[in-house]
Design a protein around this nucleic acid. Structure first.
Length: 571
RNA sequence: GUCCCUGUAGUUUAAUGGAUAGAACUAGAGACUUCUAAUCUCUCGAUACAGGUUCGAUUCCUGUCAGGGGCACCA
């Protein structure tokens, strides 16, 4: 039984003995440590019902609680308007450190979603285009959510749904045709190939806007790709698509994400059309030559599923995708997209509900905002287009390297560490706030790496590693057993890690974890500053301190892992 | 116009209906012969506005104002 369950049980019994019923028992950690470790408002909540003032009710409840006091409770106090505050014993905190050290591999996990299967779709890229910041955001949010659910005991499958057909693709293929002379060889590097495709797309997209004749050509290419009826076009398309996918795989590796399933728009559009037509007249209706879903009937708005030209739109393809997903057993299906898609997703899901209510009800949507520059505008690359994820990472990495080279001893794996720190800095910025909100990424501020940042966590983790190493060298073993009064603020926080992860998983709020880790790191650093951890003169004392360092190290590591932020051993 | 989302220190933000609204950045003062100073310590500063529900509201409801997004064949 967890500590919360024990306390809740105990309060429940006390209320029962007093004949108070129908009160939901609410436990929380007071913001102020001096208000105890746990607090409940049951006296306030039941006062009216009982017809007494809250203070008296609190006194009654405390009297009952004292009769059967749990051994982990040091004292129970009434405070403020009628709160009941619980103070835990030192033994509890020592025990909690022990538990962390005994379960290094599983700290923070819970069984909330045991035996549940989750399918999460995120980072849905466009073939023939670079991964941009939006994808990076979706990836950070999606991966953190996936890991939170894994920590909750679920079996999580990751999927990505790439757009590999449609007008943007046709633009790129047209560009490839024009730029045959610059076409890379098969033996060329992936970056050379993707650069070529990027240029081809930019060229095609530009001409599409400025030249009516070319616009017509591209529209035709688009149709040929759908119909697969032109050998030259298909050959270019196949080549470009393959190159793009190679590039995407490289990027996934860089971001440390793996996908169990890779879905493509090109393989779901037929099925999407089929579903829509099969439900024509029931779910969908014809309007102005197109097939639409009348969202107004559900307080939403109408959206086109099949265009008047007979082509399935994004919405129809989503339905086709659902058929693919149905081949995978799941209890929860999550889709991560940008928040500008929210309305589309809502209407799409409502339509899906009319077709397959059971699966639609198991589907949830998580959205992320935009990453904006300091001026509140979209960030752009040096060339003026939208900034690619890689450029973003590289620019941060350059700054990290600069900073690292200022130091005394330069690490041998400096490049690798710099990249991890850069990715960590970016991911932290994204995850530290509620998803769905736009993020203002002040590159200079994030690069100062001070305070509320990924590198701060990574640095603190590296620092604990260093301490543990030094301790080992000095022949000091790790031993729990004594309560270090100077480390009280650390003890009183670290045991909450599991509940924080559980709540974050329940509410899809990675920022609950970032906030917690930040607080833990900050408290640990304050402790570190005022305390000599390794002291050969006092080995016994050092052993006990190192146990706490080890616990912080473990929790930071597990915390970084669940967020998908790379941990570095040294920096 | 309509629907949805968002308004918290100068800035970026946290807060499961609870107690003195918590951080970080910036600014100012201080701390490395000693375990990683990418650190630590101290100071200044905030719930857009008006009502309502509640013992208690940043949180829930209504209205106003401000910003963003969706609203027919792009994804």
């Amino acid at each position: 039984m967890t500590i919360q369950e024990q306390l809740t049980q105990s309060i429940k019994e006390a209320l029962l003995n007093l004949g108070i019923e129908g009160i939901e028992i609410h436990l929380e950690h007071p913001t102020e440590n001096l208000h105890g470790d746990f607090s409940t408002n049951v006296a306030l909540a039941s006062a009216k019902k009982v017809g007494k003032n809250p203070q008296d009710v609190a006194d009654d409840i405390i009297r009952e609680l004292e009769k059967n006091k749990l051994n982990i409770i040091e004292k129970i106090e009434k405070a403020g308007p009628g709160f009941i505050n619980f103070y835990l014993t030192k033994e509890f905190f020592i025990q909690s450190i022990k538990e962390i050290l005994d379960n290094k591999k599983s700290v923070g996990s819970n069984n909330r979603l045991k035996n549940k299967k989750v399918l999460i779709e995120h980072t849905s890229p466009n073939a023939f285009k670079l991964l941009h910041i939006g994808h990076f955001m979706a990836n950070a949010v999606g991966e953190a959510t996936a890991r939170l659910l894994e920590y909750s005991g679920a079996e999580v499958k990751r999927a990505t749904y790439a757009s590999d057909i449609g007008l943007p693709v046709a633009k790129a293929v047209w560009g490839m045709m024009q730029m045959q002379a610059e076409m890379p060889e098969d033996t060329d590097s992936v970056s050379r190939k993707v650069e070529f495709i990027g240029n081809a797309y930019t060229h095609g997209a530009g001409m599409y806007e400025s030249d009516e004749e070319i616009k017509k050509q591209i529209d035709e290419i688009n149709i040929h790709i759908y119909k697969k009826d032109d050998e030259d076009i298909i050959s270019l398309y196949t080549k470009g698509r393959a190159w793009s996918l190679m590039y995407l795989e490289e990027m996934y590796k860089k971001l440390d994400t793996n996908f169990d399933y890779r879905f493509f728009e090109s393989e779901v559009f037929d099925e999407g059309s089929r579903i829509v037509r099969a439900h024509l007249g029931k779910v969908f209706e014809e309007s102005e030559g197109a097939i639409v879903f009348k969202g107004e009937d559900y307080g939403l708005h109408t959206r086109v599923f099949i265009s008047s030209k007979g082509a399935p739109t994004y919405e129809a393809k989503e339905l086709g995708l659902q058929t693919k997903k149905a081949e995978i057993p799941y209890d929860i299906s999550i889709v991560v997209t940008g928040n500008e898609q929210s309305a589309v997703m809502e209407v799409g899901l409502k339509a899906f509900e009319q077709i397959d209510a059971e699966r639609a009800n198991k589907t949830e949507h998580i959205s992320h905002g935009l990453m904006l520059g300091k001026n509140g505008k979209k960030m752009s690359s040096r060339k003026g287009g939208s900034l690619s994820a890689e450029e973003l990472i590289e620019s941060v990495k350059t700054e990290v390297l600069k900073k690292m080279k200022e130091g005394e001893d330069v690490l041998s794996n400096i490049e690798e560490v710099a990249e991890k720190v850069a990715v960590g800095a970016l991911k932290y910025q994204i995850l530290k706030q509620g998803s769905g909100k736009n993020i203002v990424f002040d590159i200079e501020q994030a690069l100062s790496f001070e305070g509320d940042s990924g590198p701060y966590l990574q640095y603190t983790y590296a620092r604990t590693n260093s301490l543990l190493e030094k301790g080992k060298e000095a022949g000091i073993e790790i031993k729990t057993g004594v309560y270090e009064a100077s480390a009280e603020s650390v003890y009183k926080l670290i045991y909450q890690f599991s509940e924080v992860v559980e709540r974050a998983g329940e509410e899809y709020t990675p920022q609950t974890v970032t906030t917690f880790l930040m607080e833990l790191a900050s408290r640990f650093n304050a402790y570190y500053a005022g305390e000599k951890i390794i002291d050969i003169e006092k080995k016994e004392k050092s052993s006990e301190k190192l146990a706490l360092v080890d616990a912080v190290n473990t929790v930071l590591k597990r915390g970084l892992v669940v967020l998908g932020i790379p941990a570095v051993e040294r920096m």
